[in-house]
Amino acid sequence: MNKDNRDTQRHRTLKGAKIVLNEGFSTFSCTVRNMSDTGAKLIVQSIVGVPNRFELALDDGRRFQCETAWHTEKEIGVRFIS
């Protein structure tokens, strides 16, 4: 593993995305700041109301099922799950 306890290297990015809940009835806008094959770091206005598992829908159409690995008040580290 690398020094950040990740199995794969993350690449810096700046992508628009949405955290999708309740089968699409609820969403939170976010920005993807870095991403790998196994996870990502998201920037949000607030983590309030964001559950531990959710779907991440990138503006480019890709979708990922995620679980929270860590968080601060405005950042969420997620692992992609199948």
Score class of each variant (00 low, 15 high):
1 M>H: 07
1 M>N: 09
1 M>I: 07
2 N>D: 13
4 D>I: 01
4 D>C: 02
7 D>P: 00
7 D>I: 00
8 T>W: 00
9 Q>M: 02
9 Q>E: 14
9 Q>C: 00
10 R>Y: 04
12 R>N: 12
12 R>S: 09
12 R>V: 00
14 L>Y: 06
15 K>N: 09
17 A>N: 07
17 A>K: 08
18 K>A: 10
19 I>H: 04
20 V>M: 12
20 V>T: 13
20 V>G: 08
20 V>K: 11
21 L>E: 13
21 L>C: 07
22 N>F: 00
22 N>R: 11
23 E>K: 14
23 E>I: 00
23 E>V: 00
23 E>Q: 13
23 E>W: 04
23 E>S: 08
24 G>P: 06
24 G>Q: 06
25 F>K: 14
25 F>T: 13
28 F>T: 09
28 F>L: 06
28 F>R: 12
31 T>K: 15
31 T>A: 14
32 V>H: 09
32 V>L: 13
34 N>C: 11
35 M>C: 08
35 M>Y: 03
37 D>T: 11
38 T>C: 12
38 T>Q: 15
39 G>E: 12
40 A>R: 10
40 A>P: 05
41 K>T: 14
42 L>F: 06
42 L>D: 13
42 L>E: 07
44 V>F: 03
44 V>C: 05
46 S>N: 14
46 S>T: 15
47 I>Q: 11
47 I>A: 08
47 I>W: 07
48 V>T: 08
51 P>G: 02
52 N>T: 07
52 N>M: 07
52 N>A: 09
53 R>C: 07
55 E>A: 05
55 E>V: 03
56 L>H: 04
56 L>Y: 03
56 L>T: 03
57 A>N: 05
58 L>G: 06
58 L>A: 01
58 L>N: 03
59 D>S: 09
59 D>R: 00
59 D>E: 11
60 D>R: 01
60 D>S: 03
60 D>L: 00
60 D>K: 01
61 G>L: 03
62 R>Y: 03
62 R>K: 13
62 R>L: 08
63 R>G: 03
63 R>M: 09
63 R>Y: 02
64 F>V: 07
64 F>R: 14
65 Q>C: 09
65 Q>M: 11
65 Q>S: 15
66 C>W: 03
67 E>P: 04
70 W>R: 09
70 W>E: 08
71 H>N: 15
72 T>D: 15
73 E>R: 13
73 E>D: 15
74 K>N: 15
75 E>D: 12
75 E>L: 10
76 I>K: 10
77 G>V: 03
77 G>L: 06
78 V>E: 08
79 R>W: 00
80 F>M: 11
80 F>T: 11
81 I>V: 15
82 S>L: 05
